[in-house]
Design a protein around this nucleic acid. Structure first.
Lengths: 258, 258
DNA sequence: CCTTTTAATTAACAATATGTTAAATGTTAA
DNA sequence: TTAACATTTAACATATTGTTAATTAAAAGG
């Protein structure tokens, strides 16, 4: 009822409107460290943050200067926040064609001292090597990768600690419940590589167990073996490669094992 | 709330800002029809929509008049969109204390002909009897429940067909992967009542199978039997009651059955 | 050339879970 | 007394998982 009437009478000048609409993006990557040859890598989930400059381009002291923040910026009326996030990602890292996923809106009245600014938050998964090539090209000192295990929670700008906390929760859930793990992996991968990705965010016994996981991967409807292809990058023994296949997954807590 | 000095550095006039920030809410309920005494109910998932009036209070033809729309309204600078959604729900149905869940943002530039208006979309689950009591009190002719199976997709205002489509997808997923089903059920319920709720949005064989589901419910870590309590509302045979318990569920597509 | 090392793979078996069919239970209503 | 019926239990074949152990293939070092 109220909605109808409000809409009916809606006159922009009569209501206060937001002072800004921003799009923030949590860029995740997994760094993959090979401890020795012919062994599976040790992986770690990392988040890219940028350091806020001391002064803005006009020489005025910047708000929240020196703190770490998610990359992001204002959305223009000609684009969606998701498009803005893709644009930001491209500007910040030079990377295009990566899926960007919305995970929340942050609109607490006091969240930004500059006014009523609504933030639409996204996350993206960028393969490590693409971030490295960017770092090499444009040696911006104000960009850094932080391990999600050891984030400096009290050095974050605005309400970004809350946003990042949610981002980590969302990516963790999505890694286990969707096939986004493929964003971290090459087109074809071994069971131990997939396992290493999952172990960055879970310590599930059934995933840690090599034999069980290697057996299980063969029966998953959304993964298939790449016939006749083997690799030796994780073992001296030539190892079976797998790939994700498009399948819609409908699982339920009422039928799953617990 | 903001100091002048800080405001100076962010010049609102330089950027175009949104013309409005709205909060929409998809109110779901499950209607429960008892075909006969001592039998489990037939349930159906329904969505509450409101009909947009032909004219506004000043006699001007209303935009998108006669079409069905989600209840919602403008968010004020003193509240979050989620608070606005709770407020709307309370105003629209008189119901308080129901969890309201964000599921998406709709910010296509062309989505609202009145300007650059960003909609933050939520869903809520209201027990049937609460909606009925509201209907009795305030006989608003412009409110109706629609079965999600037979929605009139081409009679929906603005981009609400897209929002509703997403809302149904989200609630379906959440019903299977979280314990929100409890919002549709009394504090304690029989296996067949829970089953009926789930069957409104899935036809999973393992959920349809009475024996299997009745056996499974006993081993679910997030459900416990209510000791010494039985009911006869679904059977002549006194039937075991169950309740949800708070447990964090961490399941993975890599360990579940498929 | 032989031995050790190591990740991957296979095997084997007990324990657990599921799909299915059938029977038993307790109550209502005719 | 009997029929009806949702629920509950039983029973059993089949499938999946946890666990331990053995096997395989290649590399590396002597």
């Amino acid at each position: 009822m109220k909605s109808n009437k409000e809409v009916k009478h809606y006159d922009v000048s009569r209501y206060r409107t937001p002072d800004g609409y921003t799009s923030d993006i949590a860029v995740f990557t997994i760094t993959s460290e090979r401890t020795k040859a012919y062994a599976p890598p040790k992986m770690e989930l990392k988040l890219m943050l940028i350091k806020r400059a001391d002064y803005d381009t006009e020489g005025n002291p910047n708000i929240e200067a020196g703190k770490w923040a998610l990359p992001g910026g204002f959305v223009t009326p000609e684009e969606t926040a998701q498009e803005a996030a893709s644009r930001e990602l491209s500007e910040e890292t030079g990377i295009d064609g990566i899926p960007v996923k919305h995970f929340g809106v942050y609109d607490q009245p006091e969240r930004d001292p500059r006014g009523w600014i609504i933030s639409n938050a996204h996350y993206a998964i960028v393969p490590e090597h693409q971030l490295f090539s960017r770092k090499a090209n444009d040696d911006a000192a104000d960009v850094e990768l932080f391990s999600v295990e050891e984030l400096e929670w009290n050095q974050l700008a605005f309400d970004h600690s809350a946003i990042i906390c949610d981002a980590i929760a969302h990516i963790s859930r999505d890694l286990l419940q969707t096939t986004v793990a493929k964003q971290f992996l090459p087109e074809s991968f071994t069971y131990s590589e997939l396992q290493a990705v999952l172990l960055t965010i879970t310590d599930d016994k059934a995933i840690r167990n090599e034999q069980a996981f290697a057996r299980k991967i063969k029966s998953l409807p959304f993964i298939e073996a790449v016939e006749g292809q083997k690799t030796q990058r994780t073992s001296k023994l030539p190892t079976q490669l797998y790939r994700f296949v498009e399948t819609d997954i409908k699982q339920s807590i009422y039928t799953a094992r617990h």
